[in-house]
Design a protein around this nucleic acid. Structure first.
Lengths: 231, 231
DNA sequence: GAGTGGTCTAGACCACTCA
DNA sequence: GAGTGGTCTAGACCACTCC
């Protein structure tokens, strides 16, 4: 029975009317009860369709005032937080990984400030390189708060990259992402096989479990890197 | 009546149990009927709570197999699509805008390919600069498909930036975003007051209304720029 | 006060998938 | 075949907001 009105059918039909300019930006659209009658569905079904459209930013809803076609549609987009290995393998390339260094020491002032750590907090500093088809793909530099993740001391980062190990062993509830462009320093340039001062794409991520800072990671990509997202 | 079980209460309580490691990653959680009984709510209410958690990536659900705590929680983050002026004013800086050029001509092959346009399609090429407190903030280079947005011919881009004009006058339903790092060319460096070949942060956005390409824009920022997002 | 969306309930049937 | 989530219905009450 494809005749049964589904919230998807209703949602898509309404989206069609909006993108087809049948209902213009700012215009009031029929209320839930009318739409329910038109589509031969229950009001709850129409409600679900409209809520999805509102979440996507296509319409704006207010009690009593009704539902309007949004004047500024689509205000936000999503991007996936990939595990590097999966990101590389999804491109059909062979993944390789090299641990460069792993040292337990106090984090520098700048890192402590970003993570909100006390001076004496023990940290693990890990540097590694991810390659796609033998070409440097990402240089990763990471600080792990050992007070929050003491088990990291025993982790074998030669076998598993800190990225994957943390995904399995250190859940987080909050995260902050920063993206920017920078010039490669001499060491970074060598590792990524670039000229010194070549532009690099830098992603930075800080994660927390509740209030507790877990890790700060800086991920550096050669300029050929593209971060793409849709919608 | 805060006693009435709301889907929010149920959702948050379940999230609490997961982040508090009461329910471990990979573990099966009670089915909808049991949870409904526990919370004294209808199954539909529990369903809504669980669907939101699944959308957020905290749990994974499969018919017959039940609902499990996700092994790789939080798979995606959101970022806002700002209007440049609002982005600058939100920082407390004074916004200024300069139109650099505006020419109607055919788009180059590369641009046509990305937009899926025929060779003869009329386009509007617009270049402009956005400043924050008199400092160059973003260099914008844009192609507008005049077949889709003929009204753009009459738009006064000296008064309103194409960014804002399009937001008001050309709704879109699909968008693709690309971010990368690049080296500034001579003209770009001059406009952004950088040395030549300085790293720049580049955002690119293509929008469609249904199947129809609307515009392609390349937004270039000096390396001091940070794109930040949370969650 | 009245109209609109927000949410909940109780029950039902369906779709998928595992055993 | 049976258990689980996915969805729909019909009805209800509430919350917000405009008049």
């Amino acid at each position: 029975m494809s005749e049964r009105a589904s919230f998807r059918v209703i949602r898509d039909e309404i989206a069609r009317r909006i993108s087809g300019r049948l209902w213009l930006p700012g215009a009031l659209i029929p209320n839930e009860e009318l739409l329910a009658r038109e589509f031969g569905a229950a009001r709850a079904t129409v409600n679900r369709a409209l809520q999805e459209l509102a979440r996507a930013g296509l319409i704006e809803r207010r009690r009593r005032a009704g539902t309007r076609v949004a004047l500024h549609p689509v205000r936000e987009a999503r991007f996936v937080i990939p595990v590097v290995r999966q990101e590389i393998e999804a491109k059909g390339a062979a993944y390789q990984y090299r641990l460069l260094s792993r040292i337990e020491k106090a984090a520098p002032e700048l890192v402590r400030a970003r993570l909100g750590l006390a001076e004496e907090t023990p940290c693990l500093h890990v540097r590694c390189l991810h390659l796609a088809d033998r070409t440097p793909y990402q240089f990763e530099e990471r600080w792990i708060n050992l007070e929050a993740v003491p088990k990291a001391r025993e982790a074998d980062f030669n076998a598993t990259s800190p990225n994957e190990w943390l995904v399995e062993n250190a859940p987080f509830t909050e995260a902050e992402f920063t993206f920017c462009a920078a010039a490669a320093g001499p060491e970074e340039a060598a590792l990524l096989q670039l000229n010194e001062a070549a532009p690099v794409f830098v992603g930075e991520r800080i994660t927390w479990l509740g209030e507790r800072p877990i890790t700060l990671v800086r991920m550096m990509h050669p300029p050929s890197h593209r971060m793409v997202t849709r919608l």
